[in-house]
Design a protein around this nucleic acid. Structure first.
Lengths: 333, 333
DNA sequence: CTGTTAGCGCTTTCAC
DNA sequence: GTGAAAGCGCTAACAG
């Protein structure tokens, strides 16, 4: 319930003693006679007039609004992504409607329909389901990371393959002889799966025997990691690997805790590199673990540029942005 | 640019061979004859019709949208707040437009105007400036924590005073003899200032000499804390206090780092209690420090209920929700 | 109960 | 150049 008695264009026209259309032109920057413009602008100021976005939206069929769908805003990666999407949208004169789907398909579909219904100018989605079949036509969609069954949804992601390779190389540089890999992939395919490919590629390039834990379920995360480590423990208690690349900072953090609890020192006995570049409190420079960092601000800006692009026809179907390594205490300097 | 050729109510009416008004009634749940309802519903499904929110908004002067203004979505407290606001809004059939102001007054004002212009049904604000004078009339505003110069803005906050008292009592329970206090308040007044009042109150209740650092600027945070600690160091190197209540988890975390760097053990030499209840990665149960936790989900729900309340006249001007203590490794068990 | 109709506030022809 | 007038898709008031 808003702006009950807010002045309308009509009021401005009456106040300025000009025609309705003239007011509209002034507001939309269409040239009118100088004297008219001045009168209209004075009236606008006097009445404190603001255009009614709904009337305009009804006419224009657009809302200056973009919908962002993420699983939640509590996970710092998603939160940070949302933050930079908002900034980029603001720069472009748009608003962000933030939808937290809980990674539930039904909710994602519901949000998608709402976005269409609300004349959202586009949707940026980071989901764990295939929403490809549920995207209303003519609703521009940009996907972060995920591949949808949808005919043509442009995708933006970090260069995960390069990140995987980089992790191994850094581990070797830091003195590791045998880096392992741990991942818990979402069952839904995305670019993040390439972290493993990068790891395997780097192993083969360096003539190393890959050792990894790779499952589709993160149920019993701690048990799975613990079992993996135990399984690669030699008779003398030492490990078959001296470094681990873990697919996310969060999982890397968990892995560190488990290793420490088992009596290993980090980075002395085992070095760890995570992925994402999550910082403590979001605002410090402190990483939880040494990490391959995703360029979140650039990723966000790219998504926004694409979803707002005039000619969707020219959009690349996949855009990969470079990652970077940062020391975070779990590798040797 | 959305739903270019989307079917309108008119199309549905034609398809169902009923009058326009009848379709409207079916959609809005106003009773119509069974046979009509069935026909209309069939037509809606067939045409895949969806109401045009802009046309409806133009008529109804409402948008089912609530604007949340926070400084940023990177800070985990704000992010989590935003998350739970979104959930509560979703439950109530509303959308959240998230605005990150960077704590910049001009941006806050701009967002406020936009919210009004976009027919937002209300605004929930967590700001560091007095936006009281800039709230368009008839735009329902609920403030988290801050006191605005605005005539009557309902405020929701944690019971910070009780939190301050609780922090001291917990410290004493855990064996502290002399708890100190560190705070960096925003220059803009809010309920969070009461943390200090709670500390002072508890000190006087327990006959303790208060020792505190309390400034309005968080510039040179680290220097200020370091100086404070040095200043209270006795000739033998020990400290004049054996516990510190710090006004936020973030500041508490910084304080811990400084103390450790100076050679103090936590919690053996000094126990620390923060405020907020921020967890690592947002999704673990691990706190950064022992903390007085704010009930973020309840705070969010309360804000939403208030901003959506039909009769704003009955709204309490201040609602204080209880906080709780949680162990986070920086106190003795 | 149903159907007709008058706007909501704005943009945009199209005469002038 | 300006200004009158026709809708955009919907709701609600009112007449049947």
């Amino acid at each position: 319930m808003k702006r009950q008695n807010a002045p309308t264009m009509k009021d401005v026209a009456r106040e300025a003693k000009v025609a309705l259309g003239t007011v509209s032109k002034v507001i939309n920057g269409i040239p009118v006679g100088e004297e008219y413009r001045v009168k209209v602008e004075a009236a606008i100021r006097k009445l404190n007039y603001e255009v009614n976005t709904y009337a305009r939206g009804l006419k224009m069929q657009k809302s200056n609004t973009v919908t962002l769908i993420i699983p939640d805003a509590v996970n710092p990666f998603y939160a940070s992504f949302a933050h930079y999407i908002e900034s980029a949208l603001y720069e472009a004169g748009h608003f962000m409607v933030l939808c937290c789907s809980g990674a539930i398909l039904e909710k994602e579909i519901e949000y998608l329909n709402m976005a269409s219904q609300n004349q959202s100018d586009g949707v940026i989605a980071l989901t764990y389901n295939d929403i490809g079949g549920h995207v209303p036509e003519s609703l521009p969609l940009v996907s972060f990371d995920r591949i949808y069954s949808n005919a043509f949804t442009p995708r933006v992601a970090s260069d995960n393959f390069a990140g995987g390779v980089m992790a191994v190389e850094k581990l070797l540089e830091c003195g590791c002889a045998h880096p392992a890999f741990i991942t818990f992939n979402s069952p839904y395919p995305g670019e993040a799966d390439k972290r493993k490919d990068g790891y395997l590629h780097a192993c083969s390039a360096h003539n190393l025997e890959p050792v990894y834990l790779s499952t589709l379920s993160d149920a019993n995360l701690v048990c799975q990691i613990t079992d993996f480590i135990r399984h690669h423990r030699r008779a003398d208690g030492s490990l078959a690997f001296d470094g681990i690349f873990v697919n996310t900072d969060y999982n890397a953090y968990i892995t560190c805790n488990i290793l420490r609890e088992m009596g290993f020192r980090i980075p002395d006995d085992v070095q760890i590199i995570g992925f994402d570049g999550i910082t403590k409190f979001g605002i410090t420079k402190d990483l939880y673990v040494s990490s391959i960092c995703q360029p979140i601000p650039e990723l966000a800006r790219t998504c926004v540029n694409m979803v707002l692009a005039k000619d969707k026809g020219l959009l690349p179907s996949l855009t990969l942005l470079p990652v970077s390594y940062r020391y975070g205490g779990t590798t040797r300097k």
